[in-house]
């Protein structure tokens, strides 16, 4: 088997790591939390970074009228299907061995990733702005949307949003599809 084919197939399979590792993490730092609160975002769920973190984030957030962190989002059903389908297609593409298909798979994956990020942004916006009118603490004009990437100070908290292990596998998978394209070019 040509090396480029192997790289493409392995790259496609790497995306399956998203079922094993979380994709993204949001951490909330504050002086009273020497151990910061954090939630890990997977393609299938959101979990505590340390035990009971989400419960404690919700407790903090209810004062400013934010809803609880969702345990159930439609994305949790859609994302796994997308990843499974793409991984499967990637393997097929690799077996076919067409370098243009490698490139297409990589670009499609980037587009899907960007769509996912946009979806994530919409959810974050809604989570940070759609507040209960009965909130105990109301600060006119203040939104509580965590950053999409990087850090942002929100009241007494510093919110940090960064990719986690799963995302790096995804990036590596996409990267390998491009690599396989260039390798295939050379092999000719």
């Amino acid at each position: 088997m040509k090396k480029s084919k192997l790289v493409m197939i392995v790259g496609a399979l790497l995306t399956l790591a998203l079922f094993v590792f979380p994709l993204w993490n949001i951490t909330l730092e504050a002086p009273q939390y020497p151990e910061p609160l954090g939630m890990d975002i997977w393609i299938t769920k959101i979990t505590d970074h340390n035990p009971h973190d989400i419960k404690n984030i919700n407790l903090m957030n209810h004062y400013i009228g934010m809803r609880d962190v969702p345990t159930d989002l439609p994305e949790f059903k859609i994302f796994p299907i997308v990843i499974l389908v793409m991984a499967f297609l990637g393997v097929i593409v690799g077996l076919i061995g067409n370098k243009k298909l490698y490139l297409s798979w990589g670009i499609l994956m980037i587009l899907l990733g960007l769509a996912g990020m946009y979806d994530f942004y919409l959810w974050l916006y809604d989570y940070g702005h759609n507040l209960s009118p009965h909130a105990a603490i109301k600060i006119p004009g203040q939104g509580y949307m965590p950053p999409l990437l990087g850090s942002k100070s929100i009241l007494n908290f510093n919110a940090i949003s960064l990719p986690m292990t799963g995302a790096y596998f995804l990036f590596a998978g996409i990267g390998m599809s491009f690599l396989s394209y260039f390798m295939a070019k050379k092999e000719l």
Binding site: E35, P51, H52, K55, N56, L59
Partner: peptide
């Protein structure tokens, strides 16, 4: 009898 459970799970 007030049986009060503290539901918190934070330090």
């Amino acid at each position: 009898y007030f049986h009060v459970t503290n539901l918190e799970q934070d330090y």
